[in-house]
């Protein structure tokens, strides 16, 4: 479980997070939704132990990520930033292999090679393994970075808007893959999503944020109501039952 208590984050005069206390459940997919500037991304950075809050604290499975050693933290939680880039012309397999860095610190062993192969397989990257990343399409590139995060082999995987630049098919495949990781490998996944329906379809838990605060947090079916969504986004939505989940329609 990742727990935060009274988390606040301030830059200059603007308060990005206000007194956020919540618990992210393990073994499920948690979607963070909210309008632009709600603080989703900052919260995710704090949960990953990468941005130290101005006050309050974070515990990942009981440990404080801000006092943990860098490589201990990196074996606990993997984070993928929004629109990741690299200046290096790495091949896909080289990029994915860097996900193993916290485990081998420069001396990869057979287990690392195994995990890289597993990650390439899990994200259908085997055919692209030898391609330089800058020659890939946006969707392929995103998959390569997610595969790197997966190869990090951490109990927690946090992704900041991974569906950016993905077409519906790749977006669906990626979310389905994340759901499988949660269901079959027991990985705990938190993901910032702009597409409310992607959250409705794939997230077990939803954190709805607005103005740096958590507006609602709980099971998807409980959070995704017309009232909550209206309060969150200031625009009307209908929700329609669909295949055992909810479909959200902007009205």
């Amino acid at each position: 479980m990742i727990e935060t208590s009274h988390l606040s984050f301030t830059i200059g005069d603007s308060q990005i997070l206000r007194d956020v206390s919540l618990s992210i459940l393990p073994g499920v997919v948690t979607g963070l939704i909210g309008p632009n500037g709600a603080g989703k991304s900052t919260l995710l950075h704090c949960l990953a132990g990468l941005t130290e809050p101005s006050s309050g604290h974070v515990r990942i499975d009981g440990q404080d990520p801000f006092t943990a050693r860098d490589d201990d933290r990196a074996r606990m939680v993997a984070f993928l930033q929004q629109s990741p880039t690299t200046v290096s012309r790495l091949r896909v397999e080289e990029l994915v292999a860097f996900g193993r860095w916290p485990h081998h610190r420069g001396r990869p062993g057979p287990e690392d090679a195994e995990q890289v192969a597993k990650a390439l397989d899990a994200f259908d990257l085997e055919e692209l393994a030898g391609r330089p990343i800058e020659t890939l399409s946006g969707g392929q590139k995103q998959r390569a970075f997610v595969a790197m995060t997966y190869a990090q082999d951490t109990p927690w995987i946090l992704l900041d808007e991974p569906l950016n630049a993905l077409d519906p098919r790749h977006a669906r495949n990626l979310m389905a893959r994340l759901a499988t990781l949660a269901n079959e490998e027991g990985r705990s996944i938190a993901v910032v999503l702009h597409d409310i329906n992607a959250a409705a379809r794939w997230a077990d838990q939803i954190v709805a944020m607005k103005d740096g605060q958590v507006l609602a947090h709980g099971a998807s079916r409980d959070v995704l109501t017309s009232d909550t969504l209206y309060a969150c986004f200031d625009t009307p939505f209908d929700t329609v039952p669909h295949a055992g989940r909810k479909l959200v329609v902007a009205t």
Binding site: D71, L80, Q81, F98
Partner: peptide
């Protein structure tokens, strides 16, 4: 060399991989 390559992934990603 590996560390310098990881620097090229940018600060957030490098730190997420446990690089000082």
């Amino acid at each position: 060399a590996d560390r310098i390559t990881i620097l090229g992934l940018g600060e957030t990603q490098a730190r997420s991989l446990g690089l000082g």
